[in-house]
Design a protein around this nucleic acid. Structure first.
Length: 570
DNA sequence: CTACTCGGCC
């Protein structure tokens, strides 16, 4: 009978047949047979069947419980894993490192910080908290639950760290938005001579994308190829993302062209890369190529396509794409698709059609949809609609500072300074703060960040001198600061002298000072660029004869010889 | 019987 089980292997149907034989032969009491059956059922991926068999076993032992908990947590049933763990404890069974790794992973998947802490204490009591597997899972658990301090503590106390522990720490930082810390851990591991693997690279490249750290990302790419690592489809897609999000979409396409295997995510990443750079035609062209010879587009592919159309003002293509996603591909449009459509129509000034689109959305439109329309109102200075939309938005999300800031902008554009003041007071009363704007620039693998009017940098005097001199040249070239009233309450930074010392201007000055002539300067800004900076940078690209690439909250702007790739359509 | 499974979107 045991042989029959082995022959059946990890296949559900044959296992069920052997199970039937076990029952008819009256062998259901045999724990060894049922244990084997359960482990095989787990490997076959049928956790439900495995659980059914488990329930028929009298006095299940630790081994069986460990298997069940592991299978539950592996197959996406973390809650059942925890319930089984509790049951195991009430049975008074001995727990092991196997038990803890499995149940801690379940806690990680649920971000169940409280219960995970309890499990951690159980592990300490039973002496398994010093097991390297358990420690690695704890690093991952605390990181996924958002407690990076304890995650790091566990990591630091590990006597020896295997690659999984390093990866857990790096991806933990990265997924919580601590890209810089993720990179520091990575650099630390390289310094110690620890060999990274492809999981490490994916996390590190993602961190580079977020920071806009092109030099470091390129170094990682060279490390990958230089050390003979296989660039699989996931790693290749990470590289495409890194290059396009760091401003080098041409290099992203080179990677794309060189890849042996392309899946739907890869295609989507490349289309999205073109989109965020404003290269709508390339995005559309690639999309057609995908339809002809690539995998079936997913609904995310359509987000990328529609967003590319919106950025480039390709209204007809966008409408066509939206229709075909419904009719030819059978996707039900999600909030993201509606956001793209409203953005597309609104930016093109087609407000009636945008409103019609919103009305066609089943149920209550998500705030993001109204935000998209509001952005267009601001772009086209459509005050009446803008005020209506903003007020609507405040009804839905009364505590989101970004809405108040946008509303205040609209009032300011309309010259209603009394209302601007009113909005300001509401914000103060509610204790709402605007997001602080900052810009960063990478020089020799180090990222420097500047805030508006920042004077914290050691070279501050030189930077401000350089900037003043630069502004003088700009004015000679015909630059006129755009001192519209809207500037004074803009979403990013306060007006007044700030206009001259907006974070992006400081970052650009620092970038120009610290790079060779004719080279491209790349800047990252966390919020949207303002109109004045956009205009100033066009002039900077002329008087310094440099190409300047700025990534703002939504897209890339390539400034060259006084022209921006967005064609002022943003 | 173990831990990390990572990439696409405003």
């Amino acid at each position: 009978m045991y042989k029959s089980l082995l022959q059946a292997g990890a296949r559900l149907k044959p296992l069920q047949q052997v199970h039937g034989q076990i029952i008819t032969n009256g062998l259901s009491y045999s724990r060894s047979l049922l244990t084997k059956l359960i482990t095989l059922a787990c490997s076959a991926g049928s956790i439900i069947y495995a659980h059914q068999i488990f329930l028929t076993v009298q006095n299940p032992d630790s081994f069986l419980f460990n298997n069940l908990i592991k299978s539950f947590s592996k197959c996406g049933y973390p809650f059942d894993a925890i319930v089984s763990y509790q049951k195991m404890r009430t049975f008074g069974l001995v727990q092991s490192n196997f038990t803890f790794t499995a149940v801690i992973k379940a806690c990680a998947d649920l971000s169940a910080l409280k219960f995970g802490r309890v499990v951690h204490s159980h592990a300490i009591v039973s002496g398994f908290a010093s097991d390297s597997y358990v420690q690695s899972s704890l690093v991952s658990f605390y990181a996924k639950s958002g407690d990076l301090v304890v995650s790091r503590e566990v990591f630091d106390t590990m006597p020896e760290r295997c690659i999984v522990a390093w990866n857990s720490m790096i991806s933990g930082y990265e997924q919580n938005g601590f890209s810089k810390e993720a990179i520091d851990v990575f650099l630390g591991m390289i310094e110690l001579g620890v060999q990274p693997d492809s999981t490490t690279f994916v996390s590190v490249l993602s961190a580079c994308s977020h920071l806009g750290a092109l030099n470091l990302g390129t170094w990682v790419h060279e490390y990958i190829t230089g050390n003979g690592f296989d660039v699989n489809v996931i790693l290749g897609t990470s590289l495409i993302n890194m290059y396009s999000r760091c401003g080098n979409v041409g290099k992203a396409r080179e990677i794309f062209n060189g890849m042996l295997e392309l899946n739907v995510v890869t295609w989507t990443a490349m289309i999205s890369g073109y989109g965020m750079h404003g290269y709508g035609n390339q995005a559309i062209q690639l999309f057609y190529q995908m339809k002809a010879q690539g995998p079936k587009p997913s609904d995310v592919t359509f987000v990328a396509v529609l967003s590319a159309c919106a950025h480039a003002g390709l209204v007809d293509e966008g409408r066509k794409g939206f229709d075909s996603m419904k009719k030819s591909y059978g996707f039900v449009p999600r909030m993201e698709h509606h956001v793209c459509m409203v953005d597309l129509l609104g930016k093109a000034g087609l407000f009636d059609e945008a409103l019609q689109h919103i009305q066609s959305v089943p149920g209550k439109p998500a705030p993001a949809i109204w935000t998209a329309l509001l952005g267009s109102c601001k772009m086209h200075k459509n005050f009446d609609l803008g005020v209506k939309v903003a007020e609507q938005l405040l009804g839905v999300e009364p505590d989101n500072p970004a809405h108040y800031v946008l509303l205040s902008n609209i009032y300011a554009s309309a010259g209603r300074m009394d209302r601007v003041e009113m909005v300001r007071e509401i914000m103060i009363n509610k204790g709402l703060k605007k997001q602080i704007g900052y810009s960063s620039v990478e020089i020799d693998h180090v990222t420097y960040t500047f805030f508006m009017g920042d004077k914290s940098h050691p070279e501050t005097t030189a930077i401000y001198q350089y900037l003043d001199e630069l502004m003088r040249k700009l004015k000679q070239a015909g630059y006129v600061p755009e001192q519209e009233p809207v500037m004074f309450a803009l979403e990013e930074e306060e007006g007044e002298f700030a206009l001259r010392y907006h974070s992006e201007k400081l970052a650009i000055a620092f970038g120009l000072m610290n790079s060779r002539d004719k080279t491209t300067v790349r800047i990252f800004k966390n919020l949207r660029m303002c109109i004045d900076c956009h205009s100033a940078i066009k002039f900077i690209s002329i008087v310094t004869d440099r190409e300047i690439i700025v990534r703002d909250k939504h897209r890339f702007h390539h400034f060259k010889q006084g022209v921006c790739s967005c064609r002022d359509y943003w």
